[in-house]
Design a protein around this nucleic acid. Structure first.
Lengths: 182, 182
DNA sequence: CAAACCATGTAACCAGTTACATGATTAA
DNA sequence: TTAATCATGTAACTGGTTACATGGTTTG
């Protein structure tokens, strides 16, 4: 999958919108990008250092007189150029992996009931995601005059469509297995 | 995502069905599992060695008198037990990543036309996948009396539903962007 | 006779996870 | 006052990619 370091673009993309700490970046990914991305501190902090060395971002320290340490990062003009050239480039296909389907593929070996239980869990997990996304969706839809929001709305819509397809499939798969002789 | 080595189960799962070489394993993943999995020789050959050390699989060499080397692997009883305990275990959520959506999320920064072009490409790629899967589907559906085929059919159906959701989304996203002021 | 495919493998590298370590601030 | 959250970081590890190296076999 890799080759191109995408953590870099997550950071540049978020900083292009507002100044953030490493901690903030993690939060934003969790709250807003979690339906198609995730990230760990083990990626963020080393990458922030690298990006600062390359002058794609700069750092100021918020001391607020006490001993606490807070590093606030901003994107530079060079960083912005770098971000935009990535945004304009075409994207290759993602190679997705579903351990759930890998297991299902080989499941003729095990009792049907176990598989049906696993599909039930799958349906639950993804129904919950739809509910969650729809809550976000109603917030975003209310403020679509904001240009950023338009694009965020589209990524959320993607998540909803995908999850709906998953749940629809889950229900059909269950019915199929229930009506088939073991 | 990792923690548990899934390459191991791909190999055990395929060998549980028939004896195969490393090369065959690669081919089978490409041909039958590619809508939810992929694998490289750099994973397969070292893993085959490990699995042989653990006695999960055994190896015989096909010499056929000439100098060519062909290692044919079979699953052992221990290996089968290992496979089944994984098959019966519940699956945690996959963390999926879509570079395409990551880009889209930040795309308020670039010209709408470029994004629309990217969505067009996205629609093309995924429409082609649907066509491909439907061809496979008609083959599998014709032989659903075979127990293995039932489960393979379900994974394929998953792929079709997912790709259909992607294309549907793509078309709506395009319309949305075209009708919105830049 | 060349191109495509069969067949095995390694080494260097990059991406990402997990667990650990440390300490300040805020809200119940 | 204690639990949650804010905040920064590292080290060891696992997973996976890519490029390379080698050579046999089949098919047009």
């Amino acid at each position: 999958m890799p080759k191109e370091n995408r953590t870099k673009y997550v950071i540049l993309g978020l900083l292009n919108h507002e100044d953030l700490t490493g901690y903030d970046i993690k939060k934003q990914v969790e709250n807003n990008l979690s339906n198609f991305w995730d990230i760990s501190y083990g990626q963020i902090y080393p990458e922030l250092k690298k990006l600062e060395n390359y002058k794609f971002i700069s750092c100021r320290i918020d001391n607020s007189e006490n001993g606490s340490l807070k590093k606030i990062y901003s994107i530079t003009e060079t960083g912005r150029t770098e971000l935009i050239s990535w945004l304009e480039s075409s994207t290759r296909d993602e190679r997705i992996k579903f351990e759930f389907l890998l297991k299902l593929y080989f499941s003729a070996e095990i009792k049907k009931d176990i598989t049906i239980k696993n599909i039930d869990d799958f349906i639950d997990r993804h129904s919950n995601k739809i509910k969650l996304y729809e809550k976000f969706d109603s917030n975003l839809s209310a403020a679509l005059d904001n240009k950023d929001h338009k694009y965020r709305y589209l990524t959320l819509l993607f998540g909803i469509y995908m999850e709906e397809a998953f749940v629809k499939w889950g229900n059909e798969a269950k019915t199929f297995l229930e009506n088939v002789d073991d």
